[in-house]
Design a protein around this nucleic acid. Structure first.
Lengths: 253, 253
DNA sequence: TGTTATTTGTTCGTATGTATG
DNA sequence: TCATACATACGAACAAATAAC
């Protein structure tokens, strides 16, 4: 697999625990045996068990709650590793990836959303509108609703990788303190209007228009970060999206 | 950071060790202090140190050799972890990400390539052409050259994240045995012709056309995988690209 | 409210195998 | 071969947090 599968007992113990989780013997959400139980079950010392469990925790596969036990959180280490990998990059680079993912997700979502996906997107959009109406002039610059709608779109793409990366990116942007900044850079009414048009395009299975609106939307949100060196350059990327749908005249080149 | 930074001593110890490595206090290749030394240095017990070190090893940042000590292998979580994370997803999902990254990279590359980037792309393209001319009817279905050109474009985007993800994706596709399949799905002459047009667009700073050609190119390469369940759906995404500018050029060729 | 049992958190001592000189 | 240093591994013991009664 992934691990060097070293010869040390702790490593092999990690591999054995991981295998049990991956096989579904200990499903996500359930509690695994206590440390003394595992010690006897696997025939290794408790210290060794703890090292293995700690490794599983850093992989994001389990979470251990003091005096409560350790619980399975994910059958694979993937999402956590993605978040970890993203944390090593500059904000401008993260934003570049977000544009790539969101545009692709919008296209893919338009191509094959299911009834459940549509429901989720509609719900997120409705809740966002409702919330904006209630707390009109309030602080309300939170990007939570925006992220929820985008997350629903990523989900609707039917591509777990896109969805996971999107969620990981949101986390990374959040910890980088950029989420609020992005949310504040665009007027709430405008944002909801853009979301509305985007949703209409996706619901109508119009892949091209979905890509177009998403590109416009992301670029608009990014324009607020124009003081960032690279983000400035990214705003020039609005051009293709604007020209693409109706640029028949270009064909003659 | 990425870690939950839990309140446990082991977690904070992991964070402290990780910070020392990231700061360069313990450079890559060097040996970190022994466990008893770390125990005293950090003011925690040896078992706690061991758990933290084991986690670092799981992240690929250190490697511990029996009776020799533990050595720093990487200042950040190992890149191989990214490949690892990607390998947990379905081929169709990987391909969806590739489309997103490549299209974005093409746009960004067109927006701000440097002289060095242009040189690299031109070199890769020239070598590809040369190689195709020499080994005309040979086996030569290798995707190596294709990957090199795409890698050069990702590099020219100026976004390390896009570049790294692109490289990781190539590796993941390679290990999944999909690289050759993709390369074989498109005629060499057609591929080089598409690369040529793509390069011309990028060199001309035409962001829109770069995005368009890249989308067409990726979709064309993906069409060969139409027997895959989800990949079939992905080919429907050709639609937006075909409706745009040079769809008729494709019909002509 | 408080008491008790369970479970994880942390430390320490010790034994063992292995690499180095 | 021997001695030293170090990582590996085990288990005992106590602390702290949590849940159930």
């Amino acid at each position: 697999m992934s691990e060097p599968s070293g010869s040390s007992l702790a490593r092999s113990t990690l591999a054995r625990l991981r295998a049990r989780i991956a096989s579904g013997e200990w499903p996500v959400g359930t509690r695994i045996p206590t440390e003394p139980e595992l010690s006897e079950l696997l025939g290794v010392g408790r210290s060794t068990v703890r090292e293995a469990i700690r490794s599983l925790a850093t992989l994001g596969m389990v979470e251990t709650l003091t005096a409560r036990g350790t619980f399975v959180r994910s059958a694979t280490p993937a999402p956590t590793l993605l978040v970890n990998a993203l944390s090593a990059y500059e904000p401008a680079e993260l934003i570049g990836l977000r544009r790539a993912l969101d545009v692709e997700a919008a296209q893919s979502a338009a191509a094959h959303w299911t009834d459940g996906d549509l429901e989720a997107m509609e719900s997120a959009l409705r809740e966002e509108t409702e919330h904006a109406r209630r707390a009109v002039a309030a602080v309300q610059g939170r990007g939570t609703h925006c992220a929820r709608f985008h997350g629903a779109i990523a989900q609707a793409s039917g591509n777990r990788l896109l969805s996971d990366l999107d969620a990981s990116l949101s986390t990374a942007l959040e910890t980088a303190g950029l989420a609020d900044q992005i949310a504040a850079s665009i007027d709430v009414a405008v944002r909801i209007d853009e979301h509305d048009r985007l949703f209409t395009a996706i619901r109508g299975r119009d892949v091209a228009k979905a890509a177009h609106h998403m590109a416009l939307h992301v670029d608009a949100a990014l324009r607020g970060l124009s003081h960032k060196p690279v983000a400035t350059d990214l705003t020039t990327l609005v051009a293709p999206a604007q020209r693409t749908p109706s640029a028949r005249r270009e064909a003659a080149s």
